[in-house]
Amino acid sequence: MTLDIQSGILRPKIDMHCHVWLMEGWEQSADHLVNSGAMLGITEYWCSSIIQQGILAPIEEVRPHNNTILSAMARHPQRIRGWCFVIPGHFQDAIDEAERCLDAGMIGIKLYNQYRINDPAVHPILELATERRVPILQHAGYPVAEHRASQPLISHGIHFTEASEKYPDAMLIHAHIGGGGDWEHTVREMRDASPNVYIDVSGSNLDDGQVEYAVTELGIGRVLFGTDGTMAGSVGKVLDADLTDDQREHIFFTNAEHILAQQGAAPLHPLDE
């Protein structure tokens, strides 16, 4: 059967991994995100603004990132949802920031590479996420050594497995299977993780077989659609993957819907809209 790219482009999708950055012109950037995704059937965007390169910035520098996301949510209330970025080492300040953002309508917590997901410093965040039934999206991957040097504390599969052993009810999302690194390695490491550990398909690496590998290793209910800047590429890899139409629906939409339901939320635009 020939791929039906046009129909695939039009089907509704929840992009659970994207960004609006704290920067001059964020409004234009947010508008561009929404307009670009509309061409690909994306109905809502789960966005974060993050501090990269492992920088342990003070909490005063973290809050403006989240305020940008809150502003983007207000600018596009029917399209943009928020991840609250925190640096777990801020301890109570990080908890307070996450509570502030979740109370303001964000739907999850975003962690970057300041700490690994299994670091004890992250435990209070995992406890909060479990209590509030919100997911944690953790920057992750298994790059080779020379590409790991700039982010020595990047998490990979084994760290998710270890974290999920201690917090099996926490919804943990391994970011971008295509984000750069040995994706087979990191997925294999999550074979024995809690069923509440997920992975998203985003990233610029478009290796053939990647999506099917995650589905085979983790199960169809644990693979999410995200783009992280690779919009057409991420749509294309899911459309081209050797999956049933129902499996594609899980990845594009219903798995994210299930995550939202845990906190009593629903997609901004239901599938049958």
């Binding site: 790219i5 482009i9 690909l40 290796d207 749509v235 294309g236 890899k237 081209d240």
Partner: peptide
């Protein structure tokens, strides 16, 4: 790589 990205 997948063909899908280029087709999209």
């Amino acid at each position: 790589s997948y063909a899908g990205p280029a087709l999209v």
